[in-house]
Amino acid sequence: MLGPQSSLVMYDEEYQRILLLLERLLRESNSKVIFLVDKNGQLIAATGETANLDTTSLASLTAGNIAATGGLAKLIGEKEFSILFHEGEKDNIHISIIGGRVILVVIFDQRSSLGLVRLRVKKASNELAIVFEDLVSRTEREAISSSTPSPFAEITDDDIDNLFN
């Protein structure tokens, strides 16, 4: 499992696998938008009607939400609440935790239902968890092998200064 302290690294192959799973979940659950967020608030992937959505803000607030309810859980002696559901007038949000570190968010309206979303999320979660396990072992392999040097090994002070110009 991905520890809370390790950097998350995403590679092309796993990213494509994740996107495929999210797209399938979107179809099978009849939902509007799906995204995956790191527990630290960083957006990993999104699919569906994202054009008019501020996904960066959504990602940060989702992580804050999970962190706050996780804090609540601890206070009452639970490990964490692994599913959150927010019901709106039109749109609803279903939030669940995958493999301890990644947050899956499904936004849906009356074209779907909580029952359907729950069911499909459960199946997709297991498959997503496998991809994230592969990602961890891959990251470990890449870290050991010197054949793929980090692209950041040669960052210079000038590179950094240029960011702020």
């Binding site: 390790s6 950097s7 690294v9 590679y11 494509q16 790191d38 960083q42 990993i44």
Partner: peptide, 9 residues
Amino acid sequence: MSFINYASR
């Protein structure tokens, strides 16, 4: 911790 995404660079 930082998140490095090789897919979206």
